[in-house]
Amino acid sequence: MSGLLALLDDVAAIAKIAASSVDDVIGQAAKAGAKAAGAVIDDAAVSPKYVHGFSAERELPIVGRIALGSIKNKLIFLLPAGLLLSNLAPGLIAPLLMLGGGYLCYEGAEKVAHKLFPDAHHPDTVGLGPDDPAHLEEEKIAGAIKTDFILSAEIMTIALAAIPASSLVQEAVTLAIVAIGITIAVYGSVALIVKADDLGLLMSVSGRLRATRAAGRGIVRGMPGFLIGLTWVGTAAMLWVGGSIVVHGMEELGAGWLGHHIHDWAVAVGHLVPQAGAAVEWTAKAAMDGVFGLALGLALIPVAAWAIVPAWSAVSGLFARARG
């Protein structure tokens, strides 16, 4: 009997340790996901455009295929790469984060520049006629998954940097939870957004109550403005997160002068409103990070146009000729 009781005690102790580990993993995943919130907001804001122009019955299948591609990006490619990086070359995490932050700044600044100086054409649809919807759908999905790969890489790197030192298995499980949770949150939200107008139309036509029909009409009328607002929120989030990542990376690499100035200025602004000092200080810091992100992004636009894009096109052409 004493041996059985000792065994039960051991089992209970193991169960407590396991439960504690599960709690640790879930807690770390939640914190890591929160750190990546800015990139997540951008991902959710960018994705609805990929179903624009398709019939209503194709919207959810397209979102589903993009979500599946996002899961593959995160779990098959980015998670193993992130673990190797964390355990074999942790010093590269900060520079890679800064590269990702610079890309977010570039993307955000490009959207601002496009709004101020709209282009004469839209490259997403050049060369694709209206009589070829299947090919257009494949092109849109492929483009969305490529964009998702870059955003997912940023999300996973931010999450990896936020995870405290732990075992390889615990890091892997935490990153997997972050990857799956964020993908469900992003593309679940996208699915709701792209079908909201259909729901509103159904409510306005088939609702039994006058309030239901009125709410449906309100949804239909409000969705265009909501999508525009979501785009601007995503752009602001990109500039804020990208700018803050680069500033923080500069501090880690020994160039902390900009971060110190931003901190001091934000504290000074917070002191102007002592009743809400912390909130005002945070808002001021986020705004200054965003302004820096916009300036950096605008500076990167000509670099991308004159150097990175031609170089990438040349390399892609070489690989295409080699395969041919």
Rank of each mutant, 00 (worst) to 15 (best):
F117Q: 08
G102N: 00
K111M: 13
I71S: 04
N73K: 04
L88S: 10
F117M: 05
E110W: 01
F77N: 10
L96Y: 01
S86Y: 10
A67E: 13
S86K: 06
G82L: 09
C105R: 00
P95H: 09
H114A: 14
L83G: 02
L96S: 10
G108C: 01
S86A: 15
L68Q: 07
N73H: 08
L84G: 13
L85T: 08
L75D: 11
L92I: 09
L84Q: 02
A109F: 07
L99T: 06
F77A: 14
K111R: 11
L75Y: 09
A67H: 13
K115E: 12
L88V: 13
A113K: 00
M98L: 02
L85K: 01
K72Q: 11
L97E: 00
I93K: 02
I76F: 15
A113R: 07
M98G: 03
A120E: 14
P118W: 02
A67Q: 14
V112M: 04
A67W: 15
A94C: 05
L97P: 04
S86N: 11
G91K: 01
L88K: 01
L79W: 02
I93H: 00
L78P: 03
V112P: 04
N73S: 09
I93D: 00
K115L: 05
L88W: 09
V112T: 01
K111G: 03
L78I: 07
L92Y: 09
V112N: 07
L84F: 14
L85M: 12
L85N: 03
I76G: 06
A113H: 05
N73G: 08
G100F: 03
G100C: 10
I66H: 08
P90W: 07
P118N: 10
S86V: 08
C105A: 02
L97K: 12
A89M: 14
L68N: 13
L92S: 06
L88M: 11
F77Y: 15
C105E: 02
A113M: 04
L99Q: 01
E107T: 15
V112I: 14
Y106I: 09
A89Y: 06
K72G: 14
